[in-house]
Simulated scan of single mutants.
Amino acid sequence: MTASIPLPYVVFGVTGRTGAAAADALLRDGLPVRVVVRDPAKGRLWAERGAEVALADLTDLASMTRALTRVQGAYVVSPQHYNREDLFQLADLIAGTTARAAAAANVPKLVALSSVGADRENGTGWIGMNRMFEQRLAEAGIATVFLRAAYFMENWMPMVGHALRTGPLPTFLAPARRRLPMVATADVGSAAAALLQEEWKGTRVVNLAGPRDYAPNDVAAILSSMLDKPVDVVVLPEAEWPQALADAGFSVAALAGFTEMTRGLNSALIDMGSDPSAIGRAGTKTLEQVIKDIAMK
Rank of each mutant, 00 (worst) to 15 (best):
S63A: 10
G141E: 04
W156F: 09
M272E: 14
W46G: 06
P158N: 01
V10T: 12
V11W: 00
T124E: 04
G264D: 02
P230F: 03
D24F: 06
P175W: 00
E240D: 15
T15E: 08
N155M: 11
A184V: 10
E139V: 11
A244F: 13
A184F: 06
N130W: 07
A102L: 04
T284A: 14
I5P: 05
A3H: 12
V107F: 01
A74K: 01
V14T: 15
S114N: 09
L236C: 08
A140D: 02
Q135G: 08
I291T: 04
G202Q: 01
A295C: 10
F146R: 00
A25K: 01
A25M: 02
S277R: 09
A101E: 05
A163W: 00
S63C: 10
G273N: 14
K229C: 12
P216W: 00
A112C: 14
G161L: 09
V205S: 05
A138Q: 11
Q243N: 13
G257M: 12
M153G: 03
V10Y: 04
I127V: 15
S274D: 12
D39A: 11
L236K: 01
F172M: 13
A221E: 05
G128C: 11
G73C: 01
E134M: 08
G280Q: 15
N122S: 15
R84N: 05
D92R: 14
T259C: 06
D247P: 00
V37A: 03
A150K: 03
R34E: 08
N130G: 14
A221T: 07
E260N: 07
V77Y: 02
